[in-house]
Nucleic acid binder design. Structure first.
Length: 591
RNA sequence: GGCCCGGUAGUUCAAUGGAUAGAAUAGGAGUUUCCUAAACUCUAGAUACAAGUUCGAUUCUUGUCCGGGCUACCA
């Protein structure tokens, strides 16, 4: 049991014995003691004063004394300042944690909970390459799946590819008009970029045609409908839905180019999926549900034949779920896909990693599922994340301010190389080892930069800051790990040589933080928030660096101290590596 | 208009209702005969505004001001 819970339980027992009253964990708080006071953990007494009719000093003294007397192996002392009871935890407790876990690669991870959680993330469109926003989505999704796994759940990572629709037809039309049979191979272009370029060409041409029509005297909104390239695109969509062979052929070919490009990027950033759904296979789903909803009177049919649900009683609007022509809308597909996921995997929870612009949509989806009485409705969770913006404002594809994922990764690698060369610490690395190191460092910097922020909040991506390898960054933590490993290459710890010697402040500070690792994994899981982990690992690294510069391991004051510090090094390196792994970040042995 | 989210040092981010609001970066000053200076130490600097609840509010409530998102028979 974690120390905080142990303290709380001990306090509950003492209060019961002292005053005959039973309290629960919600009745009072245990905090870490602020560094400026003596002690390790603090019981906040204020909320107990009234029910016990005690002054802070009286209660603090009685409770403190009782706690120390009845738990001599846990507490070695206490002091009271105002309403705060500061407790000092016995060194032996921290030493025990250390020797029990320094070799344990599963340290911090929870027992199997026998439940299955699906995480859907990434969800790209096949008409353009991935950009910075997708990176936040991918890093978040992958990390949250790992964190959930560490919390004892089985996970299924999925991706829904938006591979059909008018936007795809735009690239296809543009390729037909301007492609002259070019392919990614013939132009030596990455497939997703190749197709994305035609999407841009479509928009250029479309804009031109609209302008010409407007000059010719047509109104703008009419011109937008009448532009020949748009009409051709709409016709193509109809042809696609009718399954016209030439269109299907072109569609398949262009999508295959995109997938080749995506695969390369996914591999590079470490995204992987247990199951990929394609919208072209799922867009007709959900129609049966509409019929069932009508039968249950959850949905109503209007005179023109369209089907609706009235959510006004829940503070939302009326939403359409089927058009008057009988075709399904976006939300209907989502209901269908949710059902399919449940049928295929029998999942207990389904997490959707989707931007906060779709908060309303996801609310509606879950509410409809609930009203339909679907068994998986309560398990739907929208992991809503904020948009990534630039210091200059929002990214806009039309203004060309979108940060391309591949370009960004290339740039980051260059910076990693440049900085590594400047420092000149790994001159004996082979070319492959160097390349690998640059990858580890650049991806580490980028992932950490995007994951260290609360997912719910929008964030500013500052290109200059993101390539900084100092301070609150991935490489800072990676560097700390490499430093520790450098010590451990020289000598490994022997646990049987460990003797209690009295902990110095920085030794104890580190152990207190390391003891907290399981609680941090749990918190990151329940709150669906990897930033807690990022923050935590950073603090571990920071404390270790202070420790490192203050106390020598190899030249410790005594052999006991040396063994103790070697064990601290082991556990710190393990926790750093383990925690970073949960963020999808690798740590090098040397850098 | 309606609904939702956010406003904390110059900047980017923290803080289950608890002690003197933490970091990083930018600024100022230092540290290397000693395990990797991608490091460490010191210094200066912030809760948009106004009420309310509370022993105690960055946190909860209300209002004001300022940003952002959603509000399609698009996906």
């Amino acid at each position: 049991m974690a120390i905080q819970q142990q303290i709380q339980q001990a306090a509950i027992n003492s209060l019961e014995q002292l005053y005959g009253k039973t309290f629960t964990t919600k009745d009072f708080q245990i905090n870490k003691t602020k560094p400026e006071f003596e002690g390790d953990y603090t019981i906040v007494l204020f909320s107990l004063l009234k029910p016990l009719s005690k002054s802070p000093d009286a209660l603090g003294n009685e409770l403190g004394k009782h706690l120390v007397d009845t738990n001599p192996s846990l507490f070695t002392g206490f002091n009271i300042i105002k309403g705060f009871l500061n407790l000092t935890v016995a060194d032996a407790y921290w030493i025990d944690i250390l020797s029990a876990n320094y070799y344990n690669s599963n340290y911090g991870k929870a027992e199997n909970k026998q439940q299955k959680v699906m995480v859907e993330y990434s969800s790209p469109n096949t008409n353009k390459p991935l950009h910075l926003g997708h990176l936040r989505n991918n890093f978040l999704g992958w990390s949250i799946a790992e964190i959930i796994k560490a919390n004892g759940y089985e996970t299924v990572k999925t991706c829904i590819v938006n591979d059909r629709g008018i936007h795809i037809c735009k690239s296809m039309i543009a390729w037909q008009l301007f492609g002259n049979g070019a392919t990614p191979q013939s132009t030596n272009t990455k497939g997703d970029h190749f197709v994305g370029d035609y999407y841009v060409k479509f928009n250029d041409e479309y804009k031109k045609q609209v302008e010409e029509l407007v000059v010719g005297g047509m109104k703008k909104d009419e011109a937008e409908k009448e532009a020949p390239i748009m009409k051709a695109t709409q016709q193509m969509l109809l042809d696609w839905e009718a399954g016209k062979p030439e269109v299907m052929q072109l569609w398949k070919e262009m999508n295959s180019w995109v997938y080749a490009g995506f695969d390369e990027t996914y591999k590079r950033i470490g995204s992987d999926f247990d199951k990929t759904y394609y919208e072209s296979n799922t867009y007709l789903l959900g129609k049966k549900t509409v019929q069932e909803g009508l039968a249950k009177n959850v949905f109503v049919q209007k005179e023109d034949g369209s089907v609706w649900i009235d959510l006004t009683a829940d503070g939302l609007d009326e939403k359409i779920v089927q058009r008057k022509d009988g075709t399904s809308v976006y939300i209907t597909q989502d209901i269908g896909l949710a059902q399919q996921k449940y049928d295929e995997y029998n999942i207990d929870q389904s997490i959707y990693v989707i931007g906060d612009e779709q908060n309303y949509h996801m609310k509606v989806l879950q509410l409809i599922c609930k009203k339909l009485g679907l068994p998986y409705a309560d398990g739907i969770f929208h992991l809503s994340y904020g948009m990534v913006e630039l210091p200059t404002g929002k990214m806009k594809s039309r203004e060309g301010t979108v940060v391309d994922a591949d370009d960004l990764l290339d740039e980051m690698e260059k910076v990693a190389q440049q900085k590594t060369e400047e420092l000149g610490k790994v001159k004996d690395f082979t070319a492959e080892e160097l390349k690998e190191l640059y990858k580890i460092l650049s991806l580490g910097a980028l992932k950490f930069y995007l994951l260290r922020v609360d997912p719910k909040k929008k964030m500013i991506f500052n290109p200059e800051e993101s390539i900084d390898f100092h301070g609150y960054t991935g490489p800072f933590i990676q560097y700390t790990h490499a430093r520790i490993k450098s010590i451990l290459r020289k000598e490994t710890a022997q646990a049987d040589k460990l003797q209690f010697t009295g902990l110095l402040k920085l030794e104890k500070d580190l152990l207190i933080e390391l003891e907290n690792y399981p609680a941090v994994i749990a918190q990151a899981g329940t709150e669906h928030d990897p930033s807690h982990l990022a923050n935590y690992i950073y603090n571990i690294a920071k404390t270790f660096n202070s420790f490192y510069s203050e106390h020598s391991v190899m030249n410790a004051e005594s052999n006991e101290k040396k063994q103790l510090r070697l064990l601290i090094c082991e556990l710190t390196a393990n926790v750093i590596a383990s925690g970073m792994q949960l963020l999808g970040i690798r740590v090098p042995e040397r850098m």
